[in-house]
Amino acid sequence: MESNQQLNKKLGIKDFVLMGIFSAIIFALATVLMIITGVTPAVYLLYPAIFALICSPIFMLVAVKVQKFGAFLIPSVVMGILFGLMGAQTLIITLIVFGIIAELIANSRKYNDYNRIAIAYVVLMLGFYAGSIAPIYVFTDWYIKQATGGVAGTDMTYLNSLIEAAKSWLGAMSVITCVITAWLGTVIGKRILKKHFEKAGLV
């Protein structure tokens, strides 16, 4: 029958439930980390990097278990919707756009090539980076303008230098860190899958 999913290349209910459950873990992790790193913008810049490191085993497991078109895209869209409902609407856009790119990369070898899955993951995390950091840049800018307008004649050098730093090398650093941790995450993810899930016969 057509519902026999092992033979079918279309996603089935097994895949939806698996992606749903693991999206729940990912979303919970994202929310907790956001609260922890949200203390100051400087720490928050590292939020996507930490997230990328921790989440990769989960994304890898989903990719390996589902192995069909949608394994990256559907969790990204679901996450996007949930973040959107919480008000982080930049994430809807970036997660869907980067989710499509990641999906195309991973699916170009039908999820059989480990390297492509890893690249797809790094791309998706860049999307997460863009979506979660962008508002901070915009709002920090606005704060400066307001602070300058608010108290006339005060010395703004300290704050300005801070912002400049954040925009230039701190910003660049945080992107690079995010890419590195995402990649490192895929290495760890692969190890965990081999050590546990393959050995226990779950993959």
Binding site: L11, V17, S23, A24, A28, P75, I81, L82
Partner: peptide, 19 residues
């Protein structure tokens, strides 16, 4: 699409249990 709504339904179902 169904693929999104079913997945989202499961996510919402399991979010409270993760803690």
């Amino acid at each position: 699409p169904r693929s999104i709504t079913i997945t989202l339904a499961v996510t919402l179902r399991f979010m409270p249990t993760i803690g």
